[in-house]
Design a protein around this nucleic acid. Sequence first.
DNA 1: TTAATTTGACCGGG
DNA 2: CCCGGTCAAATTAA
Length: 114
Amino acid sequence: MNIDSTNRFTKMTKVLDDGYAWRKYGERNILSSKFPRCYFRCAYKHDQGCKALKQAQKLEDGTNMYRITYIGRHACLLPNTSHLGEELDQWDQELGPDSFLISFEKKIPGPDYS
DNA sequence: TTAATTTGACCGGG
DNA sequence: CCCGGTCAAATTAA
């Protein structure tokens, strides 16, 4: 199975799913990587106000990992049910009271083809 | 038939 | 003019 041929990146949202409802709005090849970067925004229906974005890109280091970048906070949905919200709170505490985090990255494993 | 994705166009910053 | 972020019409999925 090859991620680049028959399957589009976003058809694998199962393995990349993080509990939020993302809607893809773009995909672009990035000069520095042979894999495309995908652009998502929060799919919250009453789509007004929620500025949260997400980017996902397969890493080239052969580890079958994806770099997931979260940008902005979800102004929608019931918040505290999300592990991502907890991660953001954690980061905010380390940053101190004067600043707050608006984006962070994490690496997650890609699909397992075994 | 409605909703989500795909994909080239569009656009703004450097 | 290049690069990357977004838009939106066409296409596909639900």
